[in-house]
Design a protein around this nucleic acid. Structure first.
Length: 262
DNA sequence: ATGGTCGTCGCACGA
């Protein structure tokens, strides 16, 4: 049975309940992973989602910041969370579908403005978070798994609007790209989005600060769909719903989709 | 050109 999965940094699930419902109604992914819900779990507005067929949820939340949720049409079992770098933040939750596929939903720390851990503690926390992710996946040797989320790093030159201009901008610095690559290798994760769309500029985030985000198109690919090698060849039809960045009162991220024939 | 815009909480802070 094929299933379609989407990941979306929603930047407040309560403010954007209507946009989540719109994506559910128009695109209908079987599984929708959200980040930056900015809500305690008990205040996530699940009723409308349930009415649209999303009767299952595993989530972690906190007041005002972070927060991750997996909304699903299919039954999903909560299989825990990790608190990498000891931040005490709701940045990861994992669920398992009845077909045996485990879904890891991550919101990696953004890392602040200055790419130097000596002067910016948040940048160090971001690198430490990735290092602990790497070590955990190295020890776990996960299989039949998907990892999605806002990883807050655009690894490839064509994942940003200007490689040269972003080399010293947090999200595209060489040390971040190296940390992300180490994490990817530790879990033998395949970048499903780039497996499907290997060539050309590809973005999932555009700043709120641009006058005209669409015309300027100064985007970055911060949101990712990865899969373990035993299921990566079942993945296809990856796409980014760029239109969603232009919806009323949008998130600054667009949803990333993939389908798995399993 | 070193700005600009959001969301949350209730004043800065994080992104």
């Amino acid at each position: 049975m094929p299933f379609t999965l989407a990941t979306w940094n929603i930047n407040s699930v309560r403010l954007r309940e209507g946009l989540v419902a719109k994506l559910m109604a128009e695109e209908g992914p079987d599984v929708l992973c959200l980040q930056e819900c900015k809500s305690p779990v008990e205040k996530i507005p699940v009723e409308q989602f349930r009415a649209l067929g999303y009767g299952h949820m595993v989530a972690r939340g906190q007041k005002g910041y972070n927060g991750v949720a997996i909304l699903s049409k299919l039954p999903i079992e909560d299989v825990g969370d990790m608190d990498f770098a000891g931040l005490g933040h709701a940045r990861h939750v994992a669920g398992r579908l009845e077909n045996g596929v485990t879904i890891h939903n991550f919101y990696v720390p953004a890392g602040g403005d200055v790419p130097d851990r000596e002067v910016n503690e948040k940048f160090g926390q971001k690198l430490d978070y990735l290092t602990e992710m790497r070590d955990w996946f190295k020890a776990e040797q996960v299989s039949k798994s998907v990892l999605v989320g806002d990883l807050n790093i655009a690894p490839r030159e064509d994942d940003v609007w200007s490689h040269k201009q972003l080399l010293k901008v947090v999200s595209h610095t060489p040390i971040e790209v190296e940390h992300l690559s180490d994490t990817q290798e530790a879990g033998r994760w395949v970048d499903v989005t780039r497996q499907d769309i290997p060539d050309g500029q590809l973005y999932s985030w555009w700043s709120y600060r641009a006058r005209d985000w669409d015309a300027a198109d100064k985007g970055r690919r911060l949101d990712h769909v990865w899969a373990t090698p035993d299921i990566s060849n079942a993945a296809h039809s990856s796409r980014i719903i760029r239109d969603a960045r232009g919806w009323d009162q949008p998130s600054d991220h667009a949803p990333v989709f993939a389908t798995f024939d399993l």
